[in-house]
Simulated scan of single mutants.
Amino acid sequence: MHDAPSPAELISAVKSFIDDTAAPQLTGHAAFYARVASNVLSTLLREIEQRPAAEAEELAGLKALLGTQAGDSIQSLNRTLCEQLRTGSMSISTPGLLEHLKTTTIAQLSIDQPQYSGLKAARAPRS
């Protein structure tokens, strides 16, 4: 039986130590760097929790937009998308493009900058 802590549990334990034990005793630069370290760990936790679903959704969106075959990577499909945008063979008027770009941007911001002021508005359904 494999019962070791998961990477997320290990990161959470270190973050809790920094936030609850170490940081309250620090001042000046050390306190600042403790906040930076805590923020980095928060980002890593969001990566672990959110990235797999975000990448699966992005891959599905790219395949739908580009009509590609199975086996293409997100990186190669994004290069293809960029090339099609650069050459003008795809534009903002291409069906599904704007929604794909919005969805992938929201997913990335949710991981990198979840407190970004425009993120809540971007997530809200349009009426």
Rank of each mutant, 00 (worst) to 15 (best):
L45G: 09
E55S: 10
A121M: 06
P95T: 07
D3N: 09
T94I: 12
V14R: 08
I92C: 00
G28K: 03
I18S: 04
S42L: 11
T105C: 11
L101M: 12
Q69E: 15
L26P: 01
P114M: 07
L26Q: 04
D20A: 10
E47A: 07
A13H: 04
E57G: 15
T104N: 11
K63I: 14
A31P: 00
V40N: 04
R123L: 14
M1F: 09
G118T: 06
I111T: 06
F17C: 05
M90Q: 05
G28Y: 11
H29N: 09
L41Y: 05
A4E: 10
E57C: 07
I48T: 00
S16H: 12
T94C: 01
I74N: 15
E99L: 05
A121F: 06
A64H: 12
S12G: 10
S38M: 02
V36S: 01
E9G: 02
A22Y: 12
P114W: 06
S117T: 15
S73P: 13
G61D: 12
A124G: 00
Q84Y: 04
V36G: 00
D112M: 11
C82R: 10
L77I: 13
E47R: 12
S12D: 08
Q75I: 14
A70W: 06
L81I: 08
A107P: 03
G118C: 03
I74H: 12
R35M: 01
A4P: 00
F17I: 02
